[in-house]
């Protein structure tokens, strides 16, 4: 039985429904529109090289935004991610001359996981508000890093060649960082939809009380979640230092607020239970394209800041309206 045209809902309704089912599509359309605008303003700018560059810059941001996405799914946030990434980056650069690149990479991820566990203990066991807990661990971490810096000031810093290769190298236009990012993203996307752990994140975010009553040990999930978030932030820091090639005590700090913005633009609800890492990836790309666009317009730094802020609010508002979520 084939339905006649009259039975079908109107095209706008169907589009709306489609977009609601596939919120990422809206974001991809927006991204393409922005790229189109860029090409209109400066014909020829959008080429293989530019795309490679944009992707390369967006990857550390998207990984930090992964921390925000995961934690936001449970209704919390990880404000220590910027500090954790900075610490891993600094430790790897200062330990490489002492221990060699591989041991240094392993050691650099240790403080990341430890700070994550600390967050998990605070949020999961002591029920501290995640905003405060992650803010505090970020402060503690940066303080420790500054003390640590005194101790290693003489050793100098070397970026492991592997990280530099990942951060800056490219083959046939494709940045090498994708070698880390694609498996990472695939794993995360699989985990959030298909694994028990991913489902638990959504369950806790949607209704923590209900999750607890159905037998979820919420504190264990929080512990694992924040440790994982710390690890991911550490990895992001390692990739970022390979890209920037100069470790500093505030390396990844400027990425923190944009990482929250990327997750929010990507449709992740800050109250938990809704969102996906797929949206966040597109959100990070949108932010990076937006930055190029604003730079291209040769506006003073102040105007760029104003537009950046307004666009974050606007995009989020439109996205919420289109997909009918709040």
């Amino acid at each position: 039985m084939t339905p006649t045209t009259q039975d079908r809902p109107s095209i706008t309704l169907r589009t709306g429904r489609f977009l609601r089912d596939w919120p990422v599509v809206t974001l991809i359309i927006l991204l393409l529109a922005l790229v189109g605008l860029l090409e209109l303003m400066r014909p020829g700018i959008v080429n293989e090289r530019w795309i490679g560059n944009t992707v390369r810059i967006a990857i550390p941001l998207a990984m930090l935004a992964a921390c925000q996405t995961m934690t936001m799914l449970t209704g919390s946030i990880d404000l220590s991610a910027g500090a954790v990434a900075t610490i891993s980056a600094f430790v790897v650069a200062t330990q490489t001359p002492l221990l060699g690149p591989h041991a240094a990479i392993a050691i650099a991820l240790l403080p990341a996981v430890l700070l994550g566990l600390l967050n998990g203990i605070g949020v999961g066991l002591f029920r501290v508000h995640p905003l405060i807990m992650t803010l505090a661990t970020g402060l503690i971490g940066i303080g420790c890093l500054q003390v640590y810096q005194r101790g290693v000031i003489a050793t100098g810093s070397v970026i492991p060649p592997l990280l530099e290769w990942l951060g800056t190298g490219r083959t046939a236009g494709l940045p090498h960082a994708l070698l880390v990012f694609i498996p990472f993203a695939a794993l995360l996307l699989w985990a959030e939809r298909r694994s028990g752990f991913g489902r638990l994140l959504y369950a806790i975010g949607a209704n923590e009380q209900a999750a607890r009553l159905s037998g979820v040990r919420v504190w264990q999930v929080h512990l694992a979640l924040y440790a994982l978030s710390g690890l991911v932030a550490g990895l992001a820091g390692l990739l970022y230092v390979g890209f920037i090639k100069a470790p500093s005590l505030s390396l990844a700090m400027p990425l923190l607020l944009p990482s929250v913005a990327a997750a929010v633009i990507g449709g992740t609800s800050i109250f938990g239970g809704r969102g996906s890492f797929a949206g966040t990836i597109v959100g990070a790309l949108i932010l990076r394209v937006l930055e190029t666009l604003l730079q291209l317009l040769r506006m003073p730094e102040g105007v760029r800041g104003i537009l950046f802020g307004l666009i974050i609010i606007l995009v989020t508002a439109i996205h919420v309206r289109l997909t009918g979520r709040d």
Binding site: A261, R304, G305, G309, L310
Partner: peptide, 15 residues
Amino acid sequence: VVTLGMLFVWEGTAL
């Protein structure tokens, strides 16, 4: 979300 966006807006205004 809104005040995060406005953080950038007011920062830009000050500049």
